[in-house]
């Protein structure tokens, strides 16, 4: 079962660093995702996780988001989310996790 999982780091608008994940953050990929997210958050003042090409997020993924949010807060950094849709958006909303993030509909909304 080769599920897609790709991560990239690029420079976004207004000083944001864009961490784009394609595919899924789940039990299988969560450690790898956390490692990359942690590295990016530590090195940058403002990080946005671009979820627009994600199609699955489980509780293992929610734990990654929560850990990174705590890390960012502790270090006085910004960490937010952009572009979730489908079940990824549902999981964020139904878990209440959306309340912790100022979620942007797309990367165009970064200021």
């Amino acid at each position: 079962m080769a599920k897609e999982f790709l991560q990239t780091e690029t420079a976004g608008a207004n000083g944001w660093t864009v961490w784009a994940v394609t595919g899924r953050i789940d039990t299988v990929t969560s450690e790898e995702a956390y490692k990359m997210g942690e590295d990016i958050v530590r090195r940058n003042a403002k990080t946005v996780l671009d979820m627009s090409d994600m199609d699955y997020l489980s509780s293992a993924g929610l734990r990654v988001l929560l850990r990174l949010k705590k890390l960012a807060k502790k270090d006085g950094k910004e960490f937010t989310i952009s572009g979730p849709s489908g079940i990824v958006k549902s999981v964020l909303e139904d878990s209440g996790m959306d309340s912790l993030f100022d979620i942007r509909a797309s990367l165009d909304e970064l200021d």
């Binding site: 509780s59 929610l62 734990r63 929560l66 949010k69 807060k73 139904d94 878990s95 996790m97």
Partner: peptide, 18 residues
């Protein structure tokens, strides 16, 4: 618990809730 501050939340139960 939504009333708890971020640092004190226990993320372990998200899955069963969903």
């Amino acid at each position: 618990d939504d009333n708890l501050p971020l640092e004190e939340r226990e993320p372990g139960g998200f899955g069963i809730f969903l």
